[in-house]
Design a binder for these strands. Sequence first.
DNA 1: TATGAATGAGGTTTCATTCAT
DNA 2: GATGAATGAAACCTCATTCAT
Lengths: 233, 233, 233, 233
Amino acid sequence: MTDQSDIFAPLRRHAGRPPRWKRAPEARPRQILEAAFRIFGTRGLHTATLEEVAREAGISKGTIYLYFPSKADLFSAMLRARVHDLMPALQPSGRVPHGVRAQRQLALLARRLHRFFRTPAFLNVYRAVIGEAAAFPEAAQSLYREGVLPANRRLAEFLRVGMDAGEFRQVDPLIAARAFVGMLQIFAISQGLLGGQRVYPMPESRILNTVTDLFFHGLLAPGQRASRTRGTP
Amino acid sequence: MTDQSDIFAPLRRHAGRPPRWKRAPEARPRQILEAAFRIFGTRGLHTATLEEVAREAGISKGTIYLYFPSKADLFSAMLRARVHDLMPALQPSGRVPHGVRAQRQLALLARRLHRFFRTPAFLNVYRAVIGEAAAFPEAAQSLYREGVLPANRRLAEFLRVGMDAGEFRQVDPLIAARAFVGMLQIFAISQGLLGGQRVYPMPESRILNTVTDLFFHGLLAPGQRASRTRGTP
Amino acid sequence: MTDQSDIFAPLRRHAGRPPRWKRAPEARPRQILEAAFRIFGTRGLHTATLEEVAREAGISKGTIYLYFPSKADLFSAMLRARVHDLMPALQPSGRVPHGVRAQRQLALLARRLHRFFRTPAFLNVYRAVIGEAAAFPEAAQSLYREGVLPANRRLAEFLRVGMDAGEFRQVDPLIAARAFVGMLQIFAISQGLLGGQRVYPMPESRILNTVTDLFFHGLLAPGQRASRTRGTP
Amino acid sequence: MTDQSDIFAPLRRHAGRPPRWKRAPEARPRQILEAAFRIFGTRGLHTATLEEVAREAGISKGTIYLYFPSKADLFSAMLRARVHDLMPALQPSGRVPHGVRAQRQLALLARRLHRFFRTPAFLNVYRAVIGEAAAFPEAAQSLYREGVLPANRRLAEFLRVGMDAGEFRQVDPLIAARAFVGMLQIFAISQGLLGGQRVYPMPESRILNTVTDLFFHGLLAPGQRASRTRGTP
DNA sequence: TATGAATGAGGTTTCATTCAT
DNA sequence: GATGAATGAAACCTCATTCAT
C-alpha cells in the first residue's frame, strides 16, 4: 500500500471505535467533521440528525454547537474539509510522467481516477454536493474552485506536455482533461449511484480499456498513429 | 366589450362569486406532478413543503393526498414522469444516419445532447435523482433502466452502424456511447450545477468542438485518418 | 328462535350485503344509523370515519349530511336508536311471572339478562356510551332515562309482586333490581370488555347459579327459608 | 420582608428573569402522567391534545416525547400508573376480620368500595379503560389482571373466612366477591357517569343499606338466620 | 468545556365538512 | 336526492437550537 492510497486514512481512523477521548478539545472540530461526513454522506443533509452525528462522534449534541454555529454550517464545513482531503487523489501521481509510453500513462491514470470515483468517499461527497448544490451554492462553487479546477489543471498540464512533445494533437487541454474525467466519472456514477451495477454490470477492465483507447486515439497526433495497438475488440 | 363577447356568457355564470375550486379530476395528477417538479426541482425533496407544491398547483394541500399517498410517493412519481418526458430528447434523430459525414453527425448529436443536459429540466432531475438516490433506490434504478439504458442503446446503435460500415474502429459500442455522453454531461453539470459557469466560463462552441473532435478521432478507423484536419479550430 | 331473541334482527339485516338500494330515501336514516352502529360500535366515535360509515351503508360520504347535521349528531342519534332497539331485551318476559317458583323465575331472568349483556350489541353500546359520556352527557342521560330507568322499573315491579305476596322481604325494589342487574353486568363487562375471558375464564353456569342463589336468598322472606336448596358448592 | 428571609437569597438568583424551564428529569414522568390523567380522564384519549397535557404539566409539547414515545404510549402508561395507584383502595382493611359481626364488616366494606367507585379518580379510569378497551386491549387486560383480579381475591378471601367459620354458606367466593362489587359499582356508574344523579338521585345510605342487607342475607348460613332483623331500615 | 433537558416552530397527514355537478 | 372532489383546520411528531448546570 503506497502513500498515495492512504488519503482515506482519516476516514478509517475510527473503524474500531476507540474509547471516546474525554479531553481533546483541539481534536474536536476534526472529530466532528469526520462523524458528520460519515452520517451526512450516508443519510443526506436533511435525513441525518445532529443527534446521530453527535453519537457517531462520541460526544453530545450540544457540543457540536461549541464548534459550529448551525447544522448548515457543519454541513458545508464538512464538504470543504472533504474536498480538501480528496484533492490528492486527483493529482496525476505527483510528477509528470516522461519516457514511459503515453498510452500506458493514460491507462494508469484512468484506473486511478476510476477507482477513486467508485470510492464511497467520493460518491458520497458527489451526492452531497450535487444534491445540495442549490441550497449551498457557495459550497458547490468552492468545491469547483478548489477541487475540480486544480485537479483539472494538473491533468491538463500532463496532456500539454504530450502535446508539446508532439505526441498529442493540439486541443484545448483543459477541456480535454475534463472530458477524460467525464468519461470515467459517468460510469462510476451511473453504476455506483444510480444502481446500474445491479441492473447492468460492466467489468471495470472493459470500461478502462475502451475509455483509454478512445481517448488516447482521440488525442494522438497523426504521425504517431502507426505505433498504436488495436482497440478493445 | 362588444355583443360578440356574449357568446361566452354561459362561462361567466358565476362571475360575481367564482367557485372556490374547479372539478378536474382527470387533469389533477399531471397538474400536481408538474407543480411538484417545479418545486422539488428547485428546492429539493426535503426543503420543499407540500404547501408550496399545492400553492404552485393552485390547489389545496389536502387535494394532493387524493392522488398521491405520501410526499415520498409524489416525489418518486414525479421522477418517473419526468424521466419518461425527458426520454425523447435523448433519441438521436430517430433514424440512424448513413452516408453523411460521420463527424458532422456526431457534432450535431453532441450539440443536441449538451444543450439538453444544460436544460434546467434535466439538471433539476439529475440533482433530484442523485441527491435522493440513497433514499429512493428504486427511483434511481428506474431512471437508469428506463432512461439511461435505452438512450444509451440508441446511441450505441448509431455508433455500431459506423463500425459496421468500416468508418469506426471496433470498440464496445455501449461503453463508447456512454463515454461520449459522459464527456458532455460533465461540462453541463460542473458548469450548470456546481456554479462553474460563474467561476470559469467556457464557450459552448469550444466544448463541443473539442469533445466532438476527440471522440471522432478516438473512434476513427486507421484508413479514414488521412481525411482529417487538426484539432479545435 | 322466539320473537324475543329477534330484537337484534335489525343488526343482522345486512349480513349478506344486499345489492345497494339505489332509490330508498325513506329508508336512508335507518340504513345510516345501522351502519353507524356497526362502525362506531367496533371502532369508536373518534377512530371511525364517516367514510367508513358511508361505505358500510353503501352510500357516499356527502349523503350522510343530507340526514344528519354532523358526525356528533349521527353518533348520538345512533345511540338513541340503539337504546330504543335494545329496550325490549330488558323487559322481564313481558308479563309478570306468577305461580312458578320465584327462584326459577329469577334464574330464567338472570340468564336472559346475562346473555344479553354479553351480546356484542350491548357491549358496544355500553362502551360507546361510557366512553363518550363526558362528551355526550345528553346521550348518556337519555340512555339512563329511557333505557336504564324503565327497564329497572319493570324488574322492580317483578320483585314487588314477590314482596307483596310475602315471598320476598320488603326492600327498596328499585335498588334491589339495579343491584341484581349490577351483579350480572359486572361479569359481562369484565369478562367481555376487559378481556377477562382470556385471562380468567368463568363458566356461565357457575356465574348464573351463584348470582341467582345469592340474590334469591338475599331477598327471601324468613318464613320461606326452609324450602330453598343449597347454593353452588 | 425581614432580614431573615435573606437566607433564601441564593434561591432568588434569577428572580428578575426566571429560567424558562427547570431541570427535573426524575420528576418528569410522574408529573406528565398526572397531567395526562387529568386531561385524558376528563376529555378522553382522542379529544385531548398533547398540547393540553403539556400545558397542564407546565412543560412544553416536545418534552413529553422525551419520556413517552407516543400519545398512545402515554395513554396506556397513564392507565397502568393509575391502576397501580388505585389498588390500595380496594384492599379490605388489610387484615381479615374475625369475631366482629360480619354484617357490620360488610357494611363498612360496602361503604369504602362505593365511595371509592364514586370518586372521579375511579370513574375517569373506568371511562378511559372501557372507552378504549378495543384500541388498547393490553391496557384493559392489565387492568383486569393487576387491578380487578387481585382486589377480587382479597375480597374473596374475606368471604371465605366467613364461610369456613360457618357464618356464610358455601358459594364460589370469587364469584360472590365480584357480584358484591358489581352491586355497588352499577350505582356508582349509572349515577356518576350516566348522569343518573341528576335524573333520579338516590341517597347513598339507602343504596348501601339495601345492598349490604341483600348480600349479607344472600350469604348467610341457615342457622345464623334468626339473629337478623328485616330489610332496609 | 461539555452536557442533555427543554423548547417550539414547522411539517406531514387526516378527515369532517362543503358544494358544484 | 346523491355524489365525491376539494378544502383547510388541527393534531401528532421531529429535531435544530438554547441554556442551566
